[in-house]
């Protein structure tokens, strides 16, 4: 899996007039790899995706960093070149498949639009290709469905259509921003299954942005955990689950009841992370410090560096390696 790097983000900072929702973020995506970016709302994960597509809202500004996509710095490209890249080489799907589809156009129209724009196909060829694509995303009876309007489809089907549009031009990178959050659990499994199959068949890389740690470990090759705009931990999924290092990751894993876990409310309360992500506003040091159970005075003054405790592993917490804290990490997991 250790292929050449397709996307390389370095020190990306996104700034709004009052806040910096993404701060000094760096990560790499290799060809054909699934990278998961995990975080709760307010972590900056969705803005990161928009920054990669250069689709940030007007008030936002990228104040520093580089985004290298197969040798080109996306931040230096002019609008025209970025438009030709979008949809063709980098595609994106969103959480809410209803609002991302135009309600007054048939799904066929919406799929062929991108094909005709980027690939210059004739109307007839584009339609045939669209039917192929609907078949590829496992929509039953695609030659009939192609003339449906979005409201005639269920949520899961709409998300499949969005995926068909996204992969129409065989992008090398697909960014999926909470692709299954609005879907039911049985449909969610189908959509993730589909995304992973397409990743293999079309040999594209996938950035999976989610708040759900369960999804991450099941489908990702590499995981970036974000908190309040910063990367706090990065690991391979197995390692992340077996031995989460950052207090935030550990807190998240402990706070969620798990299906295979025989822990019941009559046995005692769930372990909480106290407070909320709002407390990170105005922190000079580690953004998690106000909620951290092992916070030290030094944490409040200086942003911790990313340490490399093992191969393929990064964590932004020095305290975890201090005497007497490692056993905490290993307990109860």
């Amino acid at each position: 899996m250790a292929n050449a790097s397709l996307l390389s983000v370095r020190d990306l900072t996104v700034k709004f007039p009052r806040i910096e929702p993404v701060r000094n973020l760096s990560f790499d995506v290799s060809e054909g790899e699934t990278l998961a970016i995990v975080g709760e709302s307010g972590s900056g994960k969705s803005l990161t995706a928009l920054a990669l597509m250069r689709l940030l809202p007007k008030a936002a500004q990228i104040t520093s960093g580089r985004i290298d996509f197969s040798g080109r710095d996306l931040l230096k490209l002019d609008d025209r070149s970025i438009r030709s890249l979008r949809g063709k080489e980098i595609a994106m799907i969103f959480q809410e498949p209803m609002t991302s589809l135009n309600p007054v156009l048939t799904i066929g129209r919406q799929i062929t639009e991108s094909l005709r724009l980027h690939e210059g196909l004739s109307a007839k060829a584009a339609r045939l290709r669209a039917i192929e694509l609907l078949d590829l995303v496992r929509i039953p009876a695609p030659h009939k469905r192609i003339d449906d309007y979005p409201h005639q489809l269920s949520g899961g089907m709409r998300q499949r259509v969005m995926i068909a549009i996204a992969v129409a031009c065989r992008p090398r990178l697909l960014i999926a921003d909470e692709p299954t959050t609005a879907l039911d659990v049985t449909i969610q499994a189908q959509v993730l299954d589909l995304l992973d199959r397409l990743r293999r068949e079309l040999s594209m890389a996938l950035i999976l942005i989610t708040h759900d740690l369960g999804i991450v470990t099941q489908w990702a090759d590499n995981v970036v955990v974000m908190y309040a705009g910063r990367k706090v931990e990065q690991a391979l999924p197995e390692a992340l689950f077996a031995d989460p290092l950052h207090p935030y990751t550990r807190g998240l894993l402990n706070a969620s009841p798990r299906l295979k876990d025989d822990y019941h409310y009559t046995d005692g309360p769930l372990t909480e992370i106290p407070g909320s992500i709002v407390s990170a506003i105005g922190e000079n040091g580690c953004p998690f410090a106000p909620r951290c159970p092992i916070v030290r005075s030094g944490c409040r003054t200086r942003v911790p560096d990313l340490l490399v405790p093992a191969e393929d592993r990064l964590v932004a917490c020095p305290v975890i390696f201090a005497e007497g804290e490692r056993h905490v990490a290993a307990r109860g997991l």
Binding site: G251, N254, Y263, T271, G275, P293, I294, V328, R331, G332
Partner: peptide, 15 residues
């Protein structure tokens, strides 16, 4: 003030 005993905070086992 947030009183949190780290040992307690990460204990998933019943008391």
């Amino acid at each position: 003030p947030v009183v949190l005993n780290p040992a307690l905070a990460y204990d998933r086992s019943p008391p």
